[in-house]
Simulated scan of single mutants.
Amino acid sequence: MNNGSSNGSGRSPSNLPPLSLSILGVEPLDEFIREVADFIHHMIGQRPEGANGVEVEAKVGVLRDKVSGQRLSLPVLVETIIMPNSVDCRFESNMSPIQHKHFNTLLNNLKTTSSTPSEMNYAHLHLVDSFYAAPDGRGEKVRVTRDEKSGAVQACVQKVRLGSLDIYSPKRAADWRISVNVEIPVPQPIGTATHTRKKDRMSYTHEEFIVDLTQVTSTFGASSKPEVLHELEVELARPEYLLSTAAKRGDPNVSESERGAFDELIRAFVNNARILVRNSGDGWQ
């Protein structure tokens, strides 16, 4: 008679020892995390000499087919990194006001009820970005960021875009994009701004990451109607720490923890982006 035991030992499954991670006793490398880490590490290595203001961020949004305008549809079942320049699509980070409110509630609840040992800090920022033509007429515009109330200059930079990765999430309401940029400080420009944008930003800081939920109001001229967007992103908080860990990645002359610190940082970064995507509901524009 079958006694219900599948291993013939007579013990119930609850009394069995835990399973090994694998026949080698180790967990196989997560290829997704490694691909993202390799990409970011490579992009960091391509930055202009002396440029240390590295910005690594993941924006939540929707990948759309450029022809139909519909959300991208690929023959995959789970979250997938798209090979750059292989699919004719665009990324849109705008969400509806209802979705914006959903994430605001979610993040506020995390701040007040989080069970993690690290505190989540919060700041409500009101900023104004003014954009000016590049000094040499080439490259990205110069951005001057000021505090809306005091007018104090927070930053004056020219952004250099190094690269991006699109992640398609067929089981979720949203996709995401990882971008690596460098922000180079430049002298404050003289003249008239080409356009401005106001940012009403709720910023949540947790350990090495900043989650920004922002309402962006852009104005392109006195006669044009302002454009209002709602965006969500997670960003690495300390560029200097990112560069420090990147420099020691795989270095045999440092400790194992130092060699692996970069990949662990990127693992947590990816996990934070995934948490946001998996908590997204309907309401993407």
Results as ranks from 00 to 15, higher is better:
69 G>N: 10
197 R>I: 05
80 T>M: 08
169 S>L: 01
20 S>Y: 03
219 T>F: 02
113 T>Q: 12
86 S>C: 10
173 A>S: 06
243 L>D: 02
193 A>E: 06
144 V>R: 08
74 L>H: 10
261 A>R: 11
133 A>I: 08
150 S>L: 14
89 C>H: 06
75 P>H: 12
5 S>Q: 12
175 D>N: 13
186 V>N: 07
120 M>H: 05
34 R>Q: 13
244 S>N: 06
174 A>T: 15
142 V>I: 14
39 F>I: 08
232 L>G: 07
172 R>S: 15
165 L>I: 15
121 N>D: 14
259 R>H: 05
232 L>M: 13
269 F>D: 04
95 M>W: 05
272 N>Q: 05
32 F>Q: 00
35 E>F: 00
43 M>G: 00
173 A>H: 14
163 G>A: 05
153 V>I: 15
263 D>P: 06
199 K>G: 01
179 S>P: 03
233 E>Q: 12
97 P>F: 01
4 G>L: 11
21 L>S: 11
216 V>N: 05
239 P>W: 04
246 A>Q: 09
120 M>I: 06
26 V>H: 02
16 L>F: 02
60 V>T: 04
122 Y>I: 09
259 R>M: 14
240 E>G: 03
75 P>M: 08
39 F>M: 02
192 T>K: 07
228 V>W: 10
121 N>F: 11
128 V>P: 00
138 R>Y: 04
149 K>A: 15
204 Y>P: 04
43 M>N: 01
105 T>L: 13
233 E>C: 07
261 A>D: 13
149 K>E: 12
184 I>C: 08
206 H>F: 11
72 L>Y: 01
91 F>Y: 11
129 D>L: 09
193 A>S: 14
182 V>F: 00
31 E>T: 00
156 C>K: 13
83 M>G: 02
250 G>P: 14
58 A>Y: 02
271 N>F: 02
5 S>T: 11
232 L>F: 05
10 G>S: 10
57 E>D: 12
62 V>H: 01
63 L>D: 09
178 I>G: 01
259 R>A: 13
117 P>H: 10
121 N>I: 06
121 N>H: 11
114 S>R: 11
4 G>V: 03
120 M>Y: 08
60 V>M: 10
36 V>S: 03
152 A>Q: 13
19 L>A: 15
13 P>F: 15
113 T>P: 02
233 E>S: 14
90 R>L: 12
135 P>D: 06
178 I>D: 01
223 S>T: 13
122 Y>Q: 04
58 A>G: 11
45 G>E: 13
44 I>A: 05
140 E>C: 08
35 E>I: 02
185 P>E: 04
209 F>E: 10
99 Q>L: 15
36 V>H: 00
81 I>H: 01
183 E>A: 08
130 S>E: 09
243 L>M: 12
97 P>G: 02
49 E>V: 09
175 D>E: 08
273 A>R: 07
241 Y>E: 10
79 E>D: 08
270 V>I: 01
40 I>W: 08
150 S>C: 12
257 S>E: 14
124 H>W: 12
56 V>W: 03
279 N>G: 07
231 E>Q: 15
219 T>K: 11
214 T>D: 07
132 Y>K: 09
